[in-house]
Each structure stands twice: as C-alpha cells, then as structure tokens.
C-alpha cells in the first residue's frame, strides 16, 4: 500500500505572501499532499487565538482575513486537520534575540555560556504568543509543528544605523561569525525541541553582515517601500525546501 502524502497547513502572518508567491511560481519542491494557507497579517494575526482545542479568529475582521487567505472556507484549525503545521513568520522576530546576543558574543570582553544562552532562549520563546499558542496546539494533539523563521531584515534596504534600528543599538553584530550564529540557533532549536516543536532556521548562505538577509532575497519593491522585513518568494522556497516531510 503506497504511503499517503502528508497534508500540510502553512499558518502565518504577512510573511505568508512570499510562500504563496513561491507556490504559484512552482518554486517549492517538497511533496505534500494537500497544502493550505491559513492566517492573517498584523493586527488580524493578533486576533487569532487558541481555544476549545483549536485555533480560530476571535474578531469578524480576522475571520474575514483568514477565510481570504485560506480560500477553502476553513474558519478554524483543529490539531488533527493536518499532518504537519508550519508556523511561518508568525511574528517570531528572532532578530530581537540575535541582536543582543550576537553583540555579546562578538565582544571579546563579554561572555555568555551555553547554559545561559539556552535559559534565555527559553524565556524568549515563553514571551512569544505564537510559541505559546503552538505549545497549546501541540498539547491538544497536533502531530508536528515546525516554526519557519521568516528571516533577518534584508541588508541594504533601510539605513540600519538609524535610531531604533539594529545597528544603532548593536553595531558590532556585523562582525558576528557563523560559529556565533550557530550557538544561538542551537540554543533556540533546543528550546523549541523541549516544547515538542521544531525550528527551521535561516540557512547560513542567505545571511550577510552578521545578521542580515542578503539583498537578493528582498521583497519586490523593497527599497521603494522601505521594507526590509518581507522577503522574495525565493527566500520562502529555499527555507521550506529544507523541510523534510
């Protein structure tokens, strides 16, 4: 009897756009049976909650958004609806964690032990709503949940030395090495695993200047829109093609 292809739900925020484009452009090469999108952008994403054993929008505007993204009339997601749930983007913002820690690791007068890093990663994830939601969803019976990181800000789109941006607070991160990044990824992966979750991290060859995404992965019109956050379909494809099903 042939194995059934796994069904996949890609749940996310505005970063779902790059996945959708990648799908339409045929850039995704993994073999899943049924693939559906589900989620909402920005404030609507915040109105998606876990409750009564599943995830659902709690406001009409969020419901409208979810239905539009999904296209199959799926208002609610239950743990047994799909074999694999990919939490894409989901406002995880790992750059907020990487920036101070790479800054510490790149400074030869500072030190962070692996144990401290691991402990901090745990707290950081506890503070993320999407992670808390995933933990509940997993407990409710979801077989597999994979977080896919939507990537560091794209290099060369905005002036990162401007006040409030990464390099204004953490200029030394441009000196961060692969080894330093790997220590942080390891801590985060372990923190996800301790919750029964997985993390699909940004591939190393997409990173530049310590903790930025290479310019080639910028969303179309990124400079005009001054949007360093969203990525091109090629980013989503490269990331998700690393997903083993």
């Amino acid at each position: 009897m042939p194995l059934r292809s796994k069904s996949l739900l890609i749940f996310g925020d505005s970063n779902l756009a790059s996945v959708q484009h990648a799908t339409r452009q045929g850039l995704l090469n993994f073999k899943a049976g049924q693939i559906e999108f589900w989620g909402g952008a920005g404030s609507e994403f915040r109105h998606i909650h876990f409750g009564k054993g599943g995830m659902q929008p709690i406001k009409p505007s969020a419901e409208e958004m979810v239905l539009r993204v999904n296209g199959n009339g799926r208002k609610r997601i239950a743990p047994n609806d799909f074999d694999v749930f990919v939490f894409y983007g989901v406002r995880l913002r790992l750059a907020e964690f990487f920036a101070p820690y790479l800054s510490l690791l790149a400074d030869e007068d500072c030190a962070v032990s692996d144990a401290v890093l691991r402990c901090a990663a745990d707290t950081f994830l506890n503070d993320r709503r999407s992670v808390r939601m995933a933990v509940k969803f997993k407990k409710a019976g979801a077989a597999r949940i994979v977080f896919a990181y939507a990537g560091f800000p794209v290099w060369g789109i905005v002036d990162q030395t401007e006040e409030g941006r990464i390099l204004s607070n953490y200029p030394i991160v441009t000196q961060a090495t692969e080894k330093m990044r790997q220590r942080i990824w390891n801590a985060l992966i372990a923190a996800f695993e301790s919750r029964g979750l997985e993390l699909l991290h940004q591939p190393e060859d997409m990173i530049t200047q310590g903790m930025f995404t290479k310019g080639e992965y910028a969303v179309e019109g990124a400079v005009e829109k001054q949007d360093a956050s969203h990525k091109a379909p090629s980013y989503a494809a490269k990331l998700l093609n690393g997903l083993s099903l």
Partner: peptide, 14 residues
C-alpha cells in the same frame, strides 16, 4: 507602522 506594511503585503499576495 510595520503592521500597516504587513497588512498590505499579505492582502496583495492573496
């Protein structure tokens, strides 16, 4: 302000 951008991004894709 980034929320506004996100909204636009997603709506255009779907």
């Amino acid at each position: 302000s980034s929320d506004v951008k996100c909204e636009e991004e997603l709506l255009s894709a779907f």
